[in-house]
Write a protein that binds this DNA or RNA. Sequence first.
RNA 1: GCCCCCAUCGUCUAGAGGCCUAGGACACGGGCUUUUCAAGCCUGUAACAGGGGUUCAAAUCCCCUUGGGGGCACCA
Length: 488
Amino acid sequence: MTAPRVRFAPSPTGFLHVGGLRTALYNFLFARNMKGTFVLRIEDTDRTRLVEGAVENLTETLRWAGLDFDEGPGVGGPYGPYIQSERTDLYRRYAEELIRTGKAYYAFDTPEELDAMRLEQQRMRIPPKYDRRALKLTPAEVEAKLAEGVPAVVRMKVPESTTVRFEDRIRGTVEFSSDRLDDQVLLKSDKFPTYHLANVVDDHLMGITHVIRGEEWVSSTPKHVLLYQFFGWELPEFAHLPLLLNPDKSKLSKRQGDVAVEDYRAKGILREALINFVALLGWNPGDERELFSLEELTREFSLDRVGKSGAVFNVEKLAWMNTQHTRRKPDEEILSLAAPSMLEAGLEEVAPGYALNVITLVKERMSVPSDLATAFKYFFTDPEQFSEQSRKKNWRPETSGNIEAVAEALRDVDPFDEGAIERVVRETAERLDVGAGKLIHPLRLCLSGESVGPGLFEMMKVLGKETCLRRINRGVRILSEESLASNG
RNA sequence: GCCCCCAUCGUCUAGAGGCCUAGGACACGGGCUUUUCAAGCCUGUAACAGGGGUUCAAAUCCCCUUGGGGGCACCA
């Protein structure tokens, strides 16, 4: 068998939908796994919905996700151009061919006339379908209207009472009665093709062997099959992927959460996590593994293991996966991923070596790289606020004195490592005849402003003696004042 | 309304007639560990939509019902 050629054919709406990402991913994985070719084609035949910069945004997002395409806008290829608006005469030629061979016809109905027709059909309770009134026109009348420049569309002439059948790689044999099919418009009055024509023509011309796309296309596939037959072209294999769903099980859409890849990207979701997560929405390896790199997915992927039913896009599991992938990353990479949020948080002058020490310490409790600049900001700047809850719980009138005693003892610790720090803190507790917790919690509060965090002694080591002593001093001053104030 | 598709824990899913007392993961509950919170480890709750067949045997095959979804544009 020759190497397959597949394509991802989005229309440039301005952003990449996560459903589109999964479609692109499956196409990509299929192609890479089979040593085939992955093509990107832009379906921008609706001139009323043009979005500035959409193509750039799309390719950039795909690149971010790691889904490199072999042919497409920007990279070129032997079947270009890969943007449909640049191929319009092609579609016109094929539309004309269908007219010549009697597989399609001109129609001159105005939108108002079509609306009226549908209203009438609705009233009569019959399925909405073009009534072929244009077919009553004589060839001379058609010629005349064309010559006059009356706006015309080209409609496909669906044969009556035949069964249209196709094999779907995922769903098996799918059948439709042609009587159910409408005489679909192929060429609009602005001379641009509709999706159906452009898609079929391009898939054929570009040598696409497998059409892997969303389930929402199943019901228009018979029209496509008919077009292939009209042209006498070989049918590609179809694989219609199950839909991605909202929590309420409707087709994944905006309004019920984020659907744009860039939204998740902006939240600090790693490409690895998004890809991994979305890959498992409809596909699984057949065993119990869940964490995959793109390379591993490429090795394992098969259309045979794609399911049939829709999958809810479960943000919680995505978050878990992001935590997993974050932890698996080298510290250096986490640092560079966190860099933008560090800047945003005003942390410009951080020594990389120090930041790396922090990452090593807190990596296990990070879920996104940007946590470094938010949840763990206190490693880089003295705490701005102190947890009120912890202060109430752990700060007693005698605490100030105790903590000052610890600070005093800490002054001589050298080297300032966790073992030594712990020893000194515990000795001090014993000497003061208080439980270690009576010192540990207030210390944490002084040092980080928080009640929770990594182990105190490791944390102190990373912060360094000087910073610790400074923060303790400052903390005691602020916290005892606040306690005084709030106690009366 | 018409056409098509789908149906296992709340969610993602394993399961291709006996390995199923239905497995894993997320989430949730409990426990261990611990200076705290996470993590980790142990553990608990939780599903074959319903009804008929076929078969010695059905979550798995067939039919019906129900439920959910998708599509019915000069949008893709």
